[in-house]
Amino acid sequence: MRKHILVPTDFSENAWSAALYALKLYANTPCTFYFSHAFTFLNTGTRTQVPQSQIDPLVEKEKEQLIEVMNRAKKESTNSDHEFDTIFSFGSLMDSIKLANKKYKIDLVVMGTKGATGAKKILLGSNAVAVINKVRRAPLLLVPSKCKYKAPKKILFPSAFTRFFGEEIQSIKELAELHNSSIDVLHINAKETLSDIQNANLDMLKNYLEGLELNFNWRTDYKTKAYAITDFIKENNSNILTMINYEHSFIENLVKEPVIKRLGFNSKIPFMIIPRKK
Rank of each mutant, 00 (worst) to 15 (best):
L25I: 09
V59R: 04
N215H: 10
K261Q: 15
R163Q: 10
L108T: 04
Y104N: 14
L23R: 14
F271K: 05
N28W: 05
M204Q: 15
G264W: 12
F35S: 03
A226P: 14
H248A: 08
H179A: 10
E177H: 11
R163S: 14
S89I: 09
H37G: 00
G112F: 03
D56S: 11
E247G: 08
N28H: 05
K24Y: 09
S89N: 05
T86F: 01
M94R: 13
T32A: 13
R47Y: 08
H187C: 04
T230Y: 02
I251S: 00
G118Y: 00
I188W: 05
L20A: 13
Q49K: 12
A130P: 08
A228S: 10
V255D: 02
N199I: 06
D95P: 02
E192R: 15
N266L: 15
G91R: 04
R2T: 08
A128V: 08
I183W: 03
R47H: 07
E192W: 01
S92E: 13
K225R: 12
K134Y: 11
P8E: 11
S171F: 11
L66T: 00
F84C: 03
K223W: 07
P152R: 05
S92V: 07
Y149A: 09
A116G: 05
K150F: 06
K103T: 04
P51Q: 02
N239Y: 08
E252T: 04
D196A: 12
N207T: 15
N43T: 14
T193L: 10
T117L: 11
V135W: 01
G115D: 06
A100H: 01
H187L: 04
I229L: 00
I233T: 09
T40Y: 09
V7N: 04
V50G: 00
A22N: 11
S17F: 05
N71Q: 11
T242E: 05
A116D: 04
G115Q: 03
D231Q: 09
L25D: 07
S145M: 07
W16M: 07
L140Y: 00
S96K: 06
N236L: 09
K121Q: 11
N245G: 07
K24F: 13
P8R: 08
E247D: 07
K102M: 11
K74V: 05
K75L: 14
